[in-house]
Nucleic acid binder design. Structure first.
Lengths: 321, 321
DNA sequence: TTGAAAGCGCTAACAA
DNA sequence: TTGTTAGCGCTTTCAA
């Protein structure tokens, strides 16, 4: 092409405000450069951060991301997955609402790659999906061990729905720590609720109502822990003097204001980044025939205050600050 | 069509796993049933909540939403808008990174409807865009008035970048309250920084370093306020005994843990819902020829503790709880 | 190197 | 009512 023609074409592009229609392009190419992000609730800080990791990484690779909130509802999830399949997204990142085998399969059947985040699904190992998750067993183990180390022997645990793999994993880690410490597991202290404030509130009230009440409560996530705080306050008890409280997931900015709340945090942003990288690698098909990947990220224990006398000192500091 | 044929067709659909290709549909129809949501940072709880309102409303109307984070960077914003235009989204909800006239126009030129959220843009009234925003002037006015009512006369204010309309609006409301109270405005107490923790931290240190330091600080948003907290702590001062602190936007769960922090909150979820409804109404073209809409939502003052002696009582309650 | 044409899967307009 | 066809704007293949 002569430089003159070239200039003319460019000028025409400019004048007419031409923008290539990527819709037509996608249609011709059968690739949309779009991925779906299906989580339970963007409002949950864990997923917010994860979503940011996903979007940043997607943008870097010239992908867009459509986000969907399932509210832990498998039917909503199925609807969204169907929608995304129809829209011909190039891939999906999914935090499954349930571990049941499931709508996911229809995506895979259509050759749409899927990467799971945070949670497992039944029969995962027979399917061709990658997964990026936190080590819930380990996290719960160190959190429980921390409480045991502080002298607690009756520790209540409240987690989400049994349908969610992290709930069972966290209970597993809890059991392991107790067994290791030679503390018999009291099944009545283990509560499956929902990963929500209401869930934490209700189960905490029930745990604290019984005669032989626990001296510590392990919140399965941040929302549950907030419910526990509400229940404890309502019963006129103190954290952590009367009840120690720890949980999975941090609570934003809490460290700035409150001296207690030992916590295990997961690297949510990294999870988003890694999941997106795995997904894009599959989409681009750099290594077509290869085994599924399972990335397990270690959570981090952040010890603030969990029990007893230290609180008083801290409150004094708070007053002075 | 005979019921028999019908059954046969349905069976074939089932067997072949047929899913209508909405990509082809979009292409033929020139409508994608997709909207773009361009915000500064999904990680900011205000935008997280807004995004949830957008997604819920979009889903209800069978729209998908692509989300983009500009990090207050006008170039990133322009890139995203270009991308979305290329993808032929049916409309865009935008929290503009800058008030300068701008990439937005190229969307409008291509007939893609835009609804602004939270922030204005220069020459808005000449353009055919709706806007949904909080009443920053009013919010800042009542917040400042609250401080004045508590006896403060030297009140520092730290807001975001001047390029963002809410920053100027909040300063405006602040001025108005002071003027109304007959308090002369000391320009050195007005600081334009960024809507970030660092911004709040830096300006707070500067404000507190000068001889005639303010007795109260007005944080332009939640992040700025957190920066102020850090600065105040570092200087060995106490909130609110030495420095009162109030801010725009709530800080999640803070009320559960800290007795102070009077705040003005905006109805972020509703903003998302309304913006989406306006946008979809434009997309569906129910009322083609009509004036632009401007929805201004009143924020709500939440008085916790902002000054003095009450804190001690509250800390005692906290200890007992 | 450049140009022409088929095809991606749907909708809508038109014909039978 | 049912069937046929053009066309959405791009990419890719094949011909010139």
């Amino acid at each position: 092409m002569s430089p003159r023609t070239r200039a003319k074409v460019l000028q025409a592009i400019e004048e007419l405000g031409y923008v290539p229609n990527s819709l037509a392009r996608s249609f011709a190419l059968q690739r949309t450069k779009t991925i779906g992000l299906v989580i339970t609730d963007i409002t949950n800080p864990f997923f917010t951060t994860l979503a940011r990791g996903v979007e940043d990484t997607a943008a870097k690779n010239h992908f867009s991301v459509i986000f969907c909130n399932t509210d832990e509802n498998p039917e909503k999830e199925a609807l969204y997955l169907e929608l995304l399949a129809g829209k011909r997204v190039d891939g999906v990142i999914l935090a499954p609402a349930s571990r049941k085998k499931h709508s996911l399969k229809s995506l895979l059947a259509r050759g749409i790659p899927v990467v799971l985040v945070d949670r497992e699904v039944e029969g995962l190992h027979q399917m061709d999906v990658d997964i990026v998750k936190g080590d819930s067993v380990y996290g719960a183990y160190i959190l429980t061990k921390h409480l045991v180390g502080l002298g607690h022997r009756r520790i209540g645990i409240i987690v989400g729905n049994k349908e969610i793999s992290t709930a069972e994993d966290r209970v597993l880690g809890y059991r392991r720590a107790l067994e290791e410490a030679g503390i018999p597991v009291d099944e009545s202290l283990i509560r499956f609720a929902t990963y929500s404030e209401e869930g934490g509130y209700r189960e905490a009230k029930s745990l604290l109502a019984c005669g032989n009440r626990p001296t510590a409560i392990f919140g399965g996530n941040n929302f549950i822990a907030l419910g526990v705080v509400a229940a404890v306050k309502e019963l006129g008890l103190r954290i952590p003097e009367d009840i120690a409280l720890v949980c999975f997931e941090d609570i934003d900015f809490i460290s700035k204001f409150v001296p207690f709340f030992t916590v295990v945090v997961q690297p949510a942003y990294s999870m988003g980044v890694i999941a997106t990288e795995l997904l894009i690698r599959r989409i681009e098909g750099q290594d077509k025939v290869r085994e599924r990947r399972e990335v397990v990220l270690k959570p981090e224990l952040i010890v603030r205050e969990s029990a007893g006398e230290k609180l008083l000192r801290e409150v004094r500091v708070l007053q002075q600050n």
